[in-house]
Simulated assay, not measured.
Amino acid sequence: MNTLPVPDGVHFSAHLPLAWHGVLQQSTFEATRYLAVLAEFESISDERSHAQDALHAKLDLMLLWTAKNASHTLPAAKEVMIGLETIVWRDSAALPLGAHGALALSLSHILPFSLQLPAEIISCVVSEQGYVLTARLLLQEEALRDWFERTVFRNHRRLVHAGRGAQA
């Protein structure tokens, strides 16, 4: 299988649910809050008391059940390369250059949610398996951009640590 082009800077690759939508149908607030909750959900904090751990366990279980009930609406999983400013993926359909819309993707298999990020198609190249598409993210709101960048850095670090462990 041909690998996807690697974006400049910090990035990570994954096999995630992803689809293109012609219209953004999610508020920036909802997207920002999901990324903040995902960061908290994936973190391990030694600073919590026993009572806080018990509360977080209840909240985590509620979030998991809610996500499980909503995950039936996730798009099909695709090979993706996620950078700070662009997302590259392989698809069976072409998209026109300059098209504006939203990338709907789920960044967590454990806490699935169809996050929508505003984007513009900047490349569509024919490949052996269809098309390789590149979208530039149009994250205008600072809070959304900040939480998205944290998510990319967290996943990038995870892959670097996993790679170091595999080399040892």
Rank of each mutant, 00 (worst) to 15 (best):
A93L: 06
L115N: 13
Q116L: 02
Q26D: 02
K68L: 02
Q25I: 00
H161D: 08
A57W: 12
E120W: 01
L95R: 03
I122Y: 04
K78Q: 13
H109Q: 13
D53Q: 12
V23Q: 11
L159R: 10
Q167F: 01
L55K: 10
E142R: 14
H156D: 12
R154W: 10
S106I: 05
L97R: 14
P112H: 10
A36I: 09
H109P: 06
D46S: 06
P96W: 07
R154Q: 08
Q26A: 00
W20L: 00
T73I: 07
T86E: 15
L133V: 10
Q52H: 13
V88H: 14
A76S: 15
R158V: 06
G98C: 06
M81I: 05
H161L: 06
S106Q: 07
I82K: 04
R164A: 05
Q167Y: 00
V23A: 14
A77W: 09
L144V: 06
L144I: 12
L144A: 15
I87Y: 00
R136D: 10
R33T: 05
P7Y: 07
V125Q: 11
R33N: 00
S127Q: 11
Y131C: 07
P17N: 13
P118V: 03
K68T: 08
V10R: 08
S114E: 04
R154C: 10
F29M: 13
P5L: 07
L97N: 07
K68Y: 05
N2G: 02
G130T: 08
G101K: 01
P118H: 06
A19M: 01
A143D: 14
T134G: 12
L105P: 00
L115F: 11
F41D: 01
L107E: 11
I110C: 04
M62E: 09
V126S: 10
T86V: 15
A70L: 08
L95I: 06
A14L: 09
S92V: 05
R157H: 14
L59V: 05
L55F: 03
F153I: 13
G101F: 01
D53E: 03
A143K: 13
P17E: 07
H21P: 00
R157P: 00
L64I: 10
Y131H: 14
A119C: 11
S43R: 10
L4N: 11
H11W: 00
E85T: 13
H56I: 03
L64N: 02
L159E: 14
G101T: 09
F153S: 04
G98Y: 07
A99G: 02
D146G: 02
L107G: 10
H50A: 11
S123D: 05
S92M: 15
G163F: 01
L63V: 02
L61K: 12
R150K: 13
F153P: 00
E30Y: 03
A162M: 08
A70R: 15
